[in-house]
Simulated scan of single mutants.
Amino acid sequence: MSALDTSTNYLGFRSHEVLARAAGDLLPKFHLSTKVGYFPGSSGAGHCLDPERLHTAVEEAARDLGREPDLVFLHNPEHSLTPSTARSREALAKACAALDSATSRGLCGAWGIATWDPTALPPLVDASVPTPSTLMVRAGLLVGAGTLDAAEALMEAWGLGTGAMWGMSPFGGSANAPVWARADPRVFLRDGGGYSRAQAAFRVAYQLPDVSAVAVGTDEPAHLGELVGALDAVPEEQAVTKYRTLLRDRLRTQSV
């Protein structure tokens, strides 16, 4: 494990300073990604796609971390989009251009999009919107068919290849949520008996959708170590495919 992912707004907008202080000289040894898009306000965190604020946020991230991030995500751009497709496309294009410019200036190694709900984004992507290097989306058994399909459509719209999509929130918020006591995700592994339910849910998240990395919290080192041990597990492809079909059938039924 040699990658760290954080965000400007974590820990009350202190995450970069805390990480730099805790990691010290070890920080350059990690692939480091962060996110910009949320800003402190009088009533809490607010979201903004203003290009100048985003560019400044990348500058501040590099300063507070004590090094340039390897990757900076535009955080949940859907939160500041309007019902107007034309205005939303223009806002997205300008925000992406700001991160593209920051990358060109050497303030970060690359830039991407981290989106909790990508459903509004695929129709907005055209030649006016710069192409990110990486897309981060929700992944796992608790993600609905609409979100999974939208993530894949967004990858296709930007022409991103295999390995360019990352996953997040594989447990839907908590590995201790009641759902994981009721459902056994080990049925999606070829040798599920050798792993815990948390390990199985984590490993299957790499298939829903097809992602090359999955971000998880680091609050419990023992839990993190357990998840790393699941990477050797082999998913049962037919079971995952059938599950995707069931999700789509359920979505169609709800839409009728």
Rank of each mutant, 00 (worst) to 15 (best):
T34L: 05
P40I: 15
H47Q: 03
H79W: 08
C96N: 12
L92W: 13
A93C: 00
V36W: 03
L121Q: 02
L74S: 01
A86T: 14
A62Y: 15
S104R: 14
P83W: 15
A114I: 02
S101P: 04
C96I: 12
G41Q: 06
A86Y: 07
E52R: 15
D117P: 05
C108Y: 10
Y38K: 00
D64C: 10
T103D: 00
R105S: 15
T82E: 06
F39T: 03
R63W: 15
H75Y: 04
E68W: 11
A93Y: 01
L99R: 02
L54W: 05
Y38R: 00
A61S: 11
L71K: 06
I113F: 12
E59V: 10
C108F: 10
L49W: 07
P122D: 08
G37N: 06
A45G: 06
G106H: 12
S128H: 09
A102Y: 12
T119E: 02
L32C: 03
P69K: 13
S88R: 00
S88A: 14
P69Q: 13
A120D: 07
T82I: 11
G109V: 09
S88M: 10
D117I: 01
G37L: 04
C108N: 09
D50I: 13
V58E: 09
S80W: 02
A61W: 08
A110E: 11
L54M: 04
L107A: 05
P118E: 00
S88H: 06
L92E: 06
L65F: 07
D100E: 14
A93G: 02
R105I: 08
P40Y: 15
P122R: 02
W111K: 09
C96W: 15
V36E: 05
P51F: 14
L121A: 03
L65V: 03
L121T: 00
D50K: 08
P83F: 15
G46N: 07
L32S: 04
G37T: 02
A120Y: 13
W116E: 02
P51G: 10
N76G: 05
L121M: 03
A98K: 01
R53I: 01
D70Y: 08
G109R: 12
A120G: 13
E68Q: 14
S128Q: 13
D117E: 11
L107W: 13
A62V: 14
T82P: 03
W111M: 09
L49H: 04
G37C: 08
A57N: 13
L107M: 08
V36C: 07
T103H: 01
A102H: 08
A120V: 10
L92Y: 12
V125W: 01
T56R: 15
A45R: 07
A93R: 00
R105T: 11
R87C: 07
P51W: 14
C48S: 15
P69L: 11
L121W: 11
A93W: 00
G109H: 10
A91E: 03
T119R: 02
L71A: 04
L32D: 04
N76K: 06
D100F: 06
A91I: 00
G37R: 01
S128C: 12
P123F: 02
W111E: 10
S128D: 12
L49R: 03
A62W: 15
D117Q: 09
L107E: 04
S88N: 11
S88T: 01
V125F: 04
V58K: 10
L54K: 02
D64W: 14
D64M: 08
A62N: 13
L107I: 05
V125K: 00
R105H: 15
T103N: 01
A45E: 10
L71Q: 04
D100K: 10
